[in-house]
Design a protein around this nucleic acid. Structure first.
Lengths: 350, 350
DNA sequence: TTGTACGCGTTATCAC
DNA sequence: GTGATAACGCGTACAA
């Protein structure tokens, strides 16, 4: 009886609104119709100030939180956004997920993360799950789906995809310029006097891999350095493959003074491989990666890399999807890749 | 006309069931009532073989996929599981998320990941979001919520929490023995002849940090080595803090021959710090971490660590929650931490 | 065994 | 402006 307005709370647990309070209850409490409550919650129509006040009070008092599930059924939108990533434990995509979550949550949207495992079939299943969950839109981080499939999905709901050049109604593609990034990295090595530059490629199935290879060749060409196929080793974007690739390179007895690995994870593997052969970075071999993972800053020596912020990319993707959702024609600009020179590269001694 | 049974597919897009197919439609197609279809989908009751066949055929033909949203509203369960992690881009928790997803997806459950940012308030909000989304249960990865709060939540729905000792109805706690793990690490160094062993602690707010510190002291005690507070530096579980801590340690001019960092990320930072001071690992200083991140295998030199598989932990958490959901009393066993000696530690020269 | 009818919590479409 | 009323897609008592 301490507080007359709180008589309902007597038997309720410490944390309020534990028993589900519905929109109907709010309506009754405020003495209006459910429709009016809904209108106020969504700003769908103008309501008299008096009623609005009463409803707001009732909402506060009861601690009403609308049920997204029911909202989904009734309104056709679930306020949830599907996000197809490839693995949940990737240092690169992890940041993207964080960026996405940060943008979405404050706006009442929940991201629904699923991972495609770099496998087109699994990815297709992911899309199905998301569709069955009635997400309002989907963000696809790169992935292996065909452009055509993606366009098809876009007919049903807004889609944002990263790492591609693509355009279709209801579809926005956030292309990251891998060619340019790789060119930058290679050019950096060339600028330091290197001429024999090995390249550890990524998984050949991966679109990024091909582009980064292109960038490598482009830089060589610009510097009039003849491309030598013996200097490229195939990797798979993971640490182990970088280690392996260095082994292959060394075994071929082809001379090189620098290595450009198509991502940081492989570069780290490569660094270990070099050290296994008593080769020091950067004294004996300069090394540069791609992605600028947080951990690269702390590798030994700190790894030079190409920065393409996954975090910002994630934020941007979320933003663009939100624009798409609100029916706007999305305008956006993917930040350009940026060279981050650190201690793993050094000028070639003459 | 190639396939007579596919005549409907003429005007449909390549990927079937793009237009939403409802249970009602299946019922009509099969010439039965919606209830019967529902019964067959859920195995709720026995139905005649004839009808079952007809319904199965209709389902296949139409490509019917039940709508989880509607299911949630009607049946009270959403087949989605909330997962509270701390950050989406943590190498350690990332593996746990992967383990959870792998267990849940095949059973028709979708994990709903939200991140608490190591902040009790944010985490509480996460719980609210999950509750409002009507998840069937929640997995909390460590986190900062009080045990009491957790028990309270458990009254509403099944909860599995990792990294705690705790017991309550509807609540299962997967405790990881950090004390033992840290003891193992320290003991390993002692066994190699080290007596001056520095300790880089984790974020003091973090429960794991305190326990690992305990384990460190316990091992010293067992070996009758006097604990020296001057040998412990405070870190924060991130690379940067490891770097910083080594600086502090070195600045104190206190002699030490080995370092135990309370996690691998700090150990990597520490390694860089040592190298900045021209100290080699393991020739001058032995170094061991905790968590056994995948990347630790490829750090230079490969980092000794304590293995506590986040991946398995995630799988286990999902399993246990599933048990809870099915009303069973969960039985489980958290795998014990395991020492993983690698090249970053060496026997102290006499 | 099978079908009917209602409820889940909300939004949208009407009339008023 | 505001309030009934009908969906939304499915589960489930209840009746048959």
């Amino acid at each position: 009886m301490k507080n007359p307005s709180a008589k309902r709370s007597t038997k309720e647990p410490v944390t309020a609104q534990s028993a589900t309070v519905t929109l109907d209850m709010v309506a009754r409490e405020a003495g209006v119709s459910p429709a009016t409550v809904s209108r106020i919650m969504n700003g769908t129509a103008v309501v008299s100030a008096a009623r609005k006040e009463a409803v707001d009070a009732a909402i506060a008092k009861l601690g009403f939180v609308p049920n997204p599930v029911a909202r989904g059924l009734a309104g056709g939108r679930t306020f949830s956004i599907g996000v197809v990533t490839q693995t949940l434990d990737s240092p690169f995509y992890g940041s993207a997920l964080r960026g996405i979550e940060e943008k979405l949550l404050p706006l009442g949207y929940s991201p629904l993360f699923v991972s495609g495992q770099w496998n087109a079939e699994v990815e297709a299943k992911c899309m199905d799950v998301l569709r069955s969950r009635r997400v309002d839109g989907i963000i696809v981080l790169t992935g292996r789906l065909t452009d055509k499939a993606l366009k098809n999905y876009a007919k049903t709901m807004p889609i944002v995809v990263t790492g591609r050049k693509l355009s279709a109604p209801g579809l926005a593609a956030l292309y990251c310029d891998n060619v340019e990034g790789a060119r930058l990295a290679t050019q950096h090595l060339i600028g330091l006097g290197h001429r024999q530059i090995a390249f550890i490629s990524g998984d050949p199935q991966h679109p990024d891999a091909a582009e980064r290879f292109q960038g490598y060749r482009k830089a060589l060409e610009e510097a009039r350095i003849k491309f030598d196929p013996a200097l490229v080793a195939e990797g798979g974007f993971y640490e182990a493959s970088g280690l392996q690739a260095v082994g292959d390179l060394l075994a071929s007895r082809k001379r090189f003074t620098a290595i450009f690995a198509a991502n940081d994870q492989m570069a780290v593997g490569a660094a270990l491989g070099l050290s296994r052969h008593s080769l020091r970075v950067p004294e004996d071999v300069s090394l540069i990666g791609y992605d600028d993972l947080l951990s690269s800053l702390y590798s030994n020596p700190p790894l030079s890399s190409v920065h393409q912020s996954a975090y910002e990319l994630g934020q941007l993707a979320a933003d663009v999807l939100l624009q798409l959702l609100s029916g706007e024609k999305p305008v956006f600009q993917v930040p350009a890749p940026r060279l981050v020179p650190r201690e793993s590269c050094r000028r070639l001694a003459v």
